[in-house]
Design a protein around this nucleic acid. Structure first.
Lengths: 230, 230
DNA sequence: CGACAGTTTGATTAATCTCAAATGGCGTGG
DNA sequence: CCACGCCATTTGAGATTAATCAAACTGTCG
């Protein structure tokens, strides 16, 4: 059950790889489908497979020792995820769940080192991917450390509409179900505070809300909240 | 002005590299010294060199748009730093400054791709290094999102004594000058709050303070604060 | 030995969490 | 097909943490 090469064409990570290399890669890969709500892997489980998201959207969360949940990131199509081996871990540090029906390719984790060593170009790409993730993490660290909640939520909503935006009438809608609770877990606050903030914005015509739905209407106003010009 | 190979022996990143590869690597490397307080590179400057810390200790900080400072990390001997290329950036995202007199090896950033492509083993190692950094960043994100200030400070102090601890009488001292302000910038709070917390701990005999100095005396008690057992 | 940077401490204020309860949209089973 | 129930959301009030404002204190270095 090998995977069609054409799926990989056009994905940044595989750019610059020749046909032969690509087909060698795909020989070991398997395609899987997950329905909305399904779990791709669970925090703490042995990491036997690493993945790339082809279509759909995933949420990766971690649960802290005292039971609070944090959303580590949203996985968008084309993103590599679950590459625990690269972090020198033998288990998955978080749980990833499909937010909508999703398609995923998986490779045996044991292949990671071989793949990286035999395909230096891919190693570079993978490193840049992880590097970007590190950059994002630092950005969030900076925001959590220095910004008050409303600005953090603003930055998060801006990023979400950028990465997963879809035109919807006069605005841009986040293209997968996302709750106030989700946004709270992404910004280190409570769903109550997020709800209050979004209600405030809605009454000012900046966003339109809904059950697990959010549409950005006035992105200039939101940018102004996120980064007030002095 | 090439660098002695023996400096690299024993550093995790270069393990498993043969003599030839190592000496090829070192041909392009230069050794530099920095006095305490000196700047190795400045945020926003073009990233022409990537580095490894040989001895000493560095603090890497970022300044936010509105002028607040955040400490991204402390660089310990053996750590790679300033590898902007791996994050696909052309400038340094932060400023790194020597906390004590330090020795550093630098390579031309232009060599990065070549080095990685020609030395797959190093690519893997570098990726794991970046991966660990990502893991650390996620840990801090989790802490900032879910823990109150005292626990965050406790975790930070535990990590510092682990990574840079030096026996000192009945305790473990952090082996470089670190101010209350520094700790505040690592935990997303103010120096006032950090001061109050450390004073409290000192009166309970958990730590001993001092000007730019901190010694952990009762690590069990501190662990208990960091992770209360239900 | 003095000046200064770093530290401590107090009082007040503001942001946000917590606790509590009501409301409303949406999918589904009868 | 519609009514019901569930889950997400909204909103209010009070509690609490930590920031801010303010000032005094002190260990080191020149």
């Amino acid at each position: 059950m090998t995977v069609d090469i054409s799926l990989l064409r056009g994905l940044a990570l595989f750019r610059q790889l020749d046909e032969t290399t690509l087909s060698r890669l795909m020989k070991r890969a398997t395609l899987r489908r997950f329905a909305a709500g399904d779990t791709v892997f669970e925090q703490g489980a042995p990491a036997r497979t690493f993945f790339m998201l082809i279509s759909g959207r995933l949420k990766v969360t971690q649960v802290t020792a005292d039971g609070r949940q944090v959303m580590v990131r949203v996985v968008h199509p084309g993103d590599l995820f679950g590459f625990a081996r690269a972090l020198s871990r033998s288990d998955y540090p978080g749980t990833s769940r499909a937010a909508v029906d999703s398609q995923v390719i998986g490779w045996p984790m044991a292949d990671w080192d071989a793949v990286v060593e035999s395909t230096p170009q891919l190693a570079l790409n993978a490193m840049q991917t992880i590097g970007q993730r590190l950059d994002e993490a630092h950005t969030r660290l900076r925001e959590l450390s220095t910004e008050e909640v409303e600005r953090r939520v603003a930055h998060t909503v801006l990023r979400l509409t950028q990465k997963a935006g879809r035109r919807d009438g006069d605005g841009t809608r986040i293209d997968f179900p996302i709750s106030r609770q989700d946004i709270a877990e992404m910004t280190g606050t409570t769903l109550h505070t997020v709800s209050r903030i979004l209600s405030g914005w809605e009454s000012r015509g900046i966003v339109r809300g809904g059950r697990q739905r959010l549409t950005l209407v006035d992105s200039d106003a939101l940018r102004q909240i996120a980064d007030p010009e002095i």
